[in-house]
Design a protein around this nucleic acid. Sequence first.
DNA 1: CTACATCCTTGATGTGCATCAATTGGATCA
DNA 2: TGATCCAATTGATGCACATCAAGGATGTAG
Lengths: 257, 257
Amino acid sequence: MHTNERDTCRPNSRTFSRKKKNVVECDSCGLYGMCQVAGLDEPVPDLIDEIVGRREEVGISQNVITAGTPFGEIYAVKSGSFKTYVTLANGEQQIIDFYFPGELMGLEALSERNYPHSVEALEASTVCRLNFAKLDLLGERLGEFQQQLIQALSRRTRQDQWVPLLMGAQNAEQRTATFLLSLSDRFAEHGLPSQRFKLPMSRHDIANYLGLAVETVSRMFQRFQSMDLLEVHGRHVELRDMEALRVMSGLNNTNAT
Amino acid sequence: MHTNERDTCRPNSRTFSRKKKNVVECDSCGLYGMCQVAGLDEPVPDLIDEIVGRREEVGISQNVITAGTPFGEIYAVKSGSFKTYVTLANGEQQIIDFYFPGELMGLEALSERNYPHSVEALEASTVCRLNFAKLDLLGERLGEFQQQLIQALSRRTRQDQWVPLLMGAQNAEQRTATFLLSLSDRFAEHGLPSQRFKLPMSRHDIANYLGLAVETVSRMFQRFQSMDLLEVHGRHVELRDMEALRVMSGLNNTNAT
DNA sequence: CTACATCCTTGATGTGCATCAATTGGATCA
DNA sequence: TGATCCAATTGATGCACATCAAGGATGTAG
């Protein structure tokens, strides 16, 4: 079921060939404001590197965070994608959320001692790491930094409001439509292609997240395709009629993330 | 210190007869740290009152926040309860969350110009109001305040993680069990009775929130009762076997809010 | 290239829950 | 106290989606 985590981090983790990768530049990264505050524009070249570990590679299926381990840092996704999950009593995963370039992971651990869930790379990815233990190095700029943090947390809180919409009122068709739109919105927010993209997660993960069966997700994709709302080829998706999808989702357009 | 409950805790500020009301004291309120920072323990008696409007009454079905209106303040629930919702394209409400004494409402608007959803009282309630426009009155203590705010946001973010668990993997039985447990936990967190309590929301609201039909919620309650897991009389609930409920919910016990 | 493993799709069947319908119960107010 | 109204329960039926089963597509290793 699971590919081994060790052997996935292979020598060529640097040379992704065929397709070009979606990488967010710093200025559309959720950590940007914090990086700036942390001294990126200051003549303190080492300080920022001390606090922010930059562009670390993460292999597919590798865990960046393991549920229950002590909190120490938050992560910004630079490229690639991640899923967060908890393990249920029956041993199954329950996927909590997905993360994409420009977004911050680990915020929910801020006020606690431990991370509440695990975070796993869906593909070869890169992250920046912000070490909270070293934040006091910021000295008087800590206040600015906190300001940025508040912004990030608030954005995140607002994003979480999608979930009840995804899962509450809706049937399989609406959920799937809403899911695709929310992905698209999140990509757009960080300047990534939002009409035509590759789903980094399996149908299994999508189904788990949406509370549906794999087969149902597949059927919904096919149904949308037959209605000319989108085109699917495996994990590659092109949204052809976002307006129709929006109508189908049952949300009115005022509900942006 | 911190004893100015004076005008407030009169057992019936209006005429609630029969039952005593659940009111959180300041020290188990989500705004507490902020109130303190804001000057509650300082010899600046008017400052705090300037920033925090205290113990305002809200009638049943009254809206504290309307979706789309400009952000200006966050609210702490002092007594009573609230629901937040958005209006879907078909005119129906989708309930996003419920709020109980000690919790903060409106945080998701912090980084935006407008509130993303509406907040309505489920019963006669009281709130404290924290005016963001006047925060600069805090001067140098603003930093401390931000610290508190970060804590609050992070707690909130962590709480939101319940939702996918509620709605994702589970069947009606599991959802209902999880719902009851999450309510119980939230009550306990602020020192309110957590085994025996009155559901402030209708079956309709519960069903809406859980993505189930009213009838199904009712049947689940009856089923639990017949299994001796709880007792229901209308909106009054007593959890008789929380451990069994936890097992039924499918969560393992490490997933506290 | 072939072989094997995964992932995805497609079809057939059963069931959990929504839906429809009717009754009961609980609040509110005269 | 009883009349009214809405909330909650209970039962009967049908459908949407899960489940079971099999076949195709895609990728990776040899």
